Simulated scan of single mutants.
Amino acid sequence: MKYGFLKILELEFGIYLKEQETEKIELAEKCIEIYDSVEEFYKATGWKRDNPESANLE
């Protein structure tokens, strides 16, 4: 899990942390919400309603 999360931080956010930087990794984990699906994200955030151009995407 930790390696995959570090890779996500690098690829998606340009944040490079070493496995030894546990405090920073834990802080990053608390700041990121992971959803199981796009629909779950839309429901939790209301984003779909605010961005009708994405409403037709599957």
Results as ranks from 00 to 15, higher is better:
K18V: 10
G14N: 06
G14V: 03
E39L: 13
K48L: 14
G4Y: 04
G4A: 06
I34F: 15
G46N: 07
E53M: 01
L9S: 01
A55E: 06
L27D: 10
I25L: 03
C31W: 14
E39C: 05
K43D: 11
K30Y: 04
W47G: 08
A28E: 08
G14I: 02
W47E: 09
L27E: 14
K43I: 06
A44T: 05
K18N: 15
F13V: 04
I32S: 02
E23S: 14
E21H: 02
F5P: 00
A44D: 07
E33R: 12
N51I: 13
Y42W: 12
Y3M: 08
E40W: 02
E40F: 02
I25Y: 00
L17W: 02
T22V: 10
D50E: 14
E19P: 04
E19V: 07
G46H: 09
E10V: 06
D50P: 01
I15D: 03
S37N: 09
L57I: 11
Y35V: 06
F13C: 05
E39Q: 13
L17N: 00
A55T: 04
K24N: 14
V38N: 04
F5K: 00
Y42I: 07
E29Y: 13
L9G: 00
D50R: 14
I34M: 15
E23V: 12
C31Q: 15
E26D: 15
E26S: 14
G14P: 01
V38H: 06
Y35P: 01
I32W: 03
L27W: 13
I15Q: 02
G14Q: 06
E21C: 02
